[in-house]
Amino acid sequence: MTLFIEQLINGLQLGTMLFLMASGLTLVFGVMGLINLAHGSFYMVGAYATALVTAATGSFFVGLVAGIAVAAAVGALVELIVIRRLYHRPHLDQVLATFALILIFSEGTRWVFGSSPLWLNPPAMLSGSVTLPGGLRYPIYRLVIIAVGVAVAVGMYFLITRTRLGMRIRAGESDREMIGALGVNIARLYTLVFAMGAALAGLAGAMVGALQSVQVGMGEPVLILAFVVIVIGGIGSIKGALYGAILVGVVDTLGRVFLPAFFRQFMSPSEAAGVGSAIAAMLIYIMMAAILAFKPKGLFAANE
C-alpha cells in the first residue's frame, strides 16, 4: 500500500512537471494559434543556463533565476526573429519551421558546450528525504517540485482571471481580431505570452535538470509527452493542461510499475518485463487515441 501511495506521488510529481511544459504550449496555441515543436528547446536552454550559472556562482537559486530569465529572453528573441512570421501560416509550415528550430538549438548547443552532460545538483538544503505521515520516506526535492508546480498552477489561475494581461489573453483566445480593435498592442502581447511560455519551460528544465541530467536533446521526450497532455486536455485550455498533465503523469508511472508485475503472475520474469514494459510504454498513447476517438477535441475543448 505504501508502495502504491509512493508511486501515486511519483505520478503527481511527473504530472506537475508536465504541466509546466504543457501550460506554455497550450497558451501559445490558444492565443496565437501556433503549434510550437521547439518548446522542448527552451526546456534545454533553461537547464543549461541554470547549470552554467550555478557552477559560476555556487548558488542553485541564482542559477534558477538566471535559467528562467535566459529561457524567457531566448523565447522573446525567437518570437521576434522567427515565430511572428508564422502566425498566419498553415500548421504545416509551423511544424516544419519549429522542427528546424529544434535542429538549430540542439546542434548549436552541442557545438558551443560539447556533448558531455553538464553537472547540476539540487541545493544541499533540498537534498535528502523526509518521512511522510504513514512512514513513507520521500525525497524532499521531489516534494518541492510538486509545490512549485502547484504554485505555478495557482499563479496562472490568478494571472488569467484577475489581471489585465490575463484579460487580454482570454480576449485573444476567444477573438483574435477583436483584441486588436481594442487598441491592445498585439505584437507586444504575443511576444510576452511566448516569452512567458518559454520561461515556464525553462523553469521545468532547470528543476528537472537537477534531478536528471543536463544534456543536448533532453527536451524531446518531454516535448512529446507535453503534446500528449495538451491534446488530451484540449488544445488551448489551461485547465485541460492541468488535468491532462496529472492524468498522463499518474497513468504513465503506475503503468510502468504495475503492468510488469501484473504479467508476472502468468509469465516468466524476463518475458513479463518485456511484454509489460512494451505495453506500459504504449499506454499513454493508447489512452490518447481512445480519448480522441470519443472526444475529438480533447477533454476540455477550448473554443476553436
Binding site: 511519483n10 511527473l14 521531489r142 514494459s277 506500459a280
Partner: peptide, 22 residues
C-alpha cells in the same frame, strides 16, 4: 531478489527506486 527493466532512454527513476526500496 528481482530484475527490474526500465525503458530505453528513461530519465525518471522514482518508480524503480520505490520498488528497490520495497
Amino acid at each position: 531478489v528481482d530484475e527490474i527493466y526500465t525503458q530505453m532512454g528513461q530519465t525518471d527513476y522514482a518508480a524503480e527506486i520505490a520498488r528497490i526500496r520495497a
